[in-house]
């Protein structure tokens, strides 16, 4: 190694604003993605309890298919199929949301199953209508059970948003990548982007772990 030195603080300083801009997009994608995943996941979980296997069977297959194939390939797939008017970022939100909805549906399922049988029986004893039982008794308890899962998936999704580079959404990793491509210095941007992920995700996951312990 010669004197033009491996690490340049100047470059690091230079790329930082772009990375922070990208971080905003990354967090945006995570938040919107998780909102979609939370709602859609609950709907899937409820649909999975449908009495007929003609609903459950195909749904199960779709969910397994999405869950067991690469998010990256799914992103590009939907991106290429969508009309060009739809912004890539929106496609990113939706695909992240759907992919994680298949995970979240399992969290809800477990959450619903964890509500004690006695709660259902008490609701029957009070002659509550089914819809009311779900809305007022089962779901509030089930959703409480799912909070740590939700937190963990949010952290996980945050770390998977860089996949959006494949559909040219300019999030944090893409910012680093394009800076590197323009200036031929990859060391600073790529190292810093990794550290930024760590700086955000580590405290968040500690927080989630504390929540787990408190809710357990």
């Amino acid at each position: 190694m010669n004197d033009e030195s491996i690490w340049s603080w100047e470059t690091a300083w230079d790329v930082l604003p772009a990375l922070l801009r990208g971080l905003v997009v990354t967090i945006e994608a995570t938040v919107v993605g998780m909102v979609i995943a939370s709602i859609l996941g609950l709907l899937i979980a409820l649909a999975m309890r449908a009495p007929t296997r003609w609903v459950r069977g195909p749904l199960r297959f779709i969910v397994d298919f999405i869950r067991m194939t690469p998010l990256l390939v799914q992103l590009v797939f939907v991106y290429l199929l969508s009309p060009p008017e739809i912004p890539a970022l929106v496609i990113g939100f939706v695909v992240l949301g759907i992919h994680y909805a298949t995970y979240m549906s399992e969290v809800y399922r477990a959450g619903i199953e964890a509500v004690p049988q006695g709660q259902w029986e008490a609701a029957t004893a009070l002659n509550l209508p089914k819809a009311r039982t779900w809305r007022a008794i089962i779901l509030p308890q089930a959703i409480r059970n799912t909070l740590p899962g939700l937190g963990n998936y949010a952290v996980s999704m945050f770390k998977e948003t860089p996949f959006l580079f494949a559909i040219s959404v300019v999030e944090m990793y893409t910012e680093a990548q394009s800076y590197g491509a323009n200036t031929f210095s990859y060391i600073e941007p790529l190292t810093m982007v990794g550290l930024l992920f760590l700086i955000v995700s580590y405290p968040t996951s500690l927080l989630v772990r504390r929540m787990e312990i408190r809710l357990a």
Partner: peptide, 19 residues
């Protein structure tokens, strides 16, 4: 766990050779 797989793989591919 914290630094994202995407970043790690590209870091190893683009940055490590410079070392």
């Amino acid at each position: 766990r914290g630094t994202s797989l995407v970043v790690q793989i590209f870091w190893l591919f683009y940055v490590l050779p410079q070392f």
